Amino acid sequence: MSDIVIEKIAALGKAFETQAGALNTRLGELEKKYAREEGHEGGEPIGNALENAISTSDAIRDLSSSFRGKAVVKLTGERADITSGNTTAGAGRSAGTSLVPGHRVAGIIEPYQRVLRVRDVIGTARTTSSSVEYVKETSFTNNAAPVAETTLKPKSDLTFDMYNSPVRTIAHIFKISRQMLDDGPALASYIARRGTYGLKRVEEAQLLNGDGTGQNLHGIIPQATAFAPGWTATAETPIDRILQAISQAEDSEFDVNAVILNKRDWRKMTGQKDAGGNYLSDASPFGATDPRLWNMPVVATNAMPAGEFLTGAFGEAATIFDRLDVEVLISTENNDDFEKNMATIRIEERLALAVFRPDAFIYGDLVATGP
């Protein structure tokens, strides 16, 4: 072996020894630091707390087979039960910060929304004004008759009156922080959706029952004609009374196009049986059928009070005039919203309801209440 090779091997060995010494020194420093941080020199021991306490206890260390009495082992430091629910208690804690966090279902669970259908059977149009005016014939004296040649013709008469249906606004607002808009982007759309439903629910109540005072619409029921049957039915039932009401509405010469009932009343009707215990409806109880009564569509809604009905020519004898469709606006400059870092969500609509022929709507009780 040459002298050069021998010298290189010696140099490599010396360098290796130097590096190994440095590594040993660094390892020793790390071990000391680890012992201080983890409590091996007065800190909290790692591993099983009870096992560490026993292994370091002087009382346990001095035990022998001749020991009599008791030895006490004290666990120092914080001792918290390790459970899935422990961290859900206390200020600022929630199920989301639990050791075993709860399963989070995405989104917000909405309450069930009433199906709104009254508007569907009423005629609709648009307006660009703040009120809807219409001229209505109030009386017609019809003296038309066959006459002889060259004789004086009979005179008939018509009278008219002007009616007005003002456009009303239905609206409400919600307050939300800008932080919530940023942190929960779906919240704004949820509020808009629920707010629109709330608006439409009030609209349906107004279309049926608005009393016309203040800012209320003048609904159909307050203007409808009271039920006065044209004949007496044998063993009268609610179904008979609705048939009588349809006939009464047809005296207006308009085509009746719907019957509005409370949902519970409609269910009672579909469950009626004959004397033999058979359901009157071929579709009851398991079949599916389009809700119809006397060949008229039935609108079953809880907006109609139980025990009452409304029938009539919704398509022609009344009209909804929409001035502003449902509008959802968000603003950060309302009142002191800018200072408080808040936002205002406004949901509103504008509409008018014109009932041209109140005699084309019949309202009454499903069951006779008096003699």
Rank of each mutant, 00 (worst) to 15 (best):
G312M: 08
N334Q: 11
M342N: 12
D325C: 09
N335S: 15
T344M: 03
D337G: 07
T319S: 02
L324E: 11
D325S: 11
D325G: 10
G312P: 00
A313E: 04
L329E: 11
E316W: 08
I320W: 01
N335Y: 14
D336Y: 12
A317N: 04
F314M: 00
F321R: 03
A343R: 02
T344G: 09
E327A: 09
F314G: 01
M342P: 09
S331H: 15
D325W: 03
N334R: 10
F321W: 02
T332H: 14
M342A: 12
N335F: 13
T344A: 08
T319E: 00
N341I: 15
R323T: 05
T332Q: 15
K340I: 10
L310V: 08
M342G: 10
F321I: 06
D336K: 09
E333I: 02
N335C: 11
D322A: 07
A343E: 07
F314P: 03
D322E: 08
K340V: 11
T319V: 07
L324N: 12
A318C: 02
L329F: 12
N335R: 12
L329R: 10
F314S: 00
D336N: 10
V328G: 00
M342R: 11
V326P: 04
T311Y: 04
I330Y: 13
V326S: 07
S331N: 12
D337N: 10
F338R: 03
A313F: 04
V326Y: 03
E327C: 04
E316S: 06
T311D: 06
G312I: 02
I330Q: 14
T332L: 10
D337H: 10
T344Y: 13
R323P: 06
N335W: 15
E333G: 01
G315C: 01
R323I: 09
E333S: 08
G312Y: 02
V326T: 09
E339G: 06
A343V: 02
D325N: 10
A317C: 05
V328N: 09
N334F: 15
V326H: 04
N334P: 07
G312E: 01
E339W: 05
G315M: 04
D325P: 04
R323W: 04
F321V: 06
N341V: 14
M342D: 13
D336T: 12
T311S: 01
F321T: 07
D322S: 08
A313T: 05
F338G: 03
F338E: 05
V326G: 08
T332V: 15
F314C: 03
N341A: 14
L310N: 09
K340P: 11
N334L: 14
D337E: 09
R323N: 07
N334D: 15
L329V: 12
I330V: 14
A343S: 06
A317F: 01
E333R: 03
S331Q: 12
I330M: 12
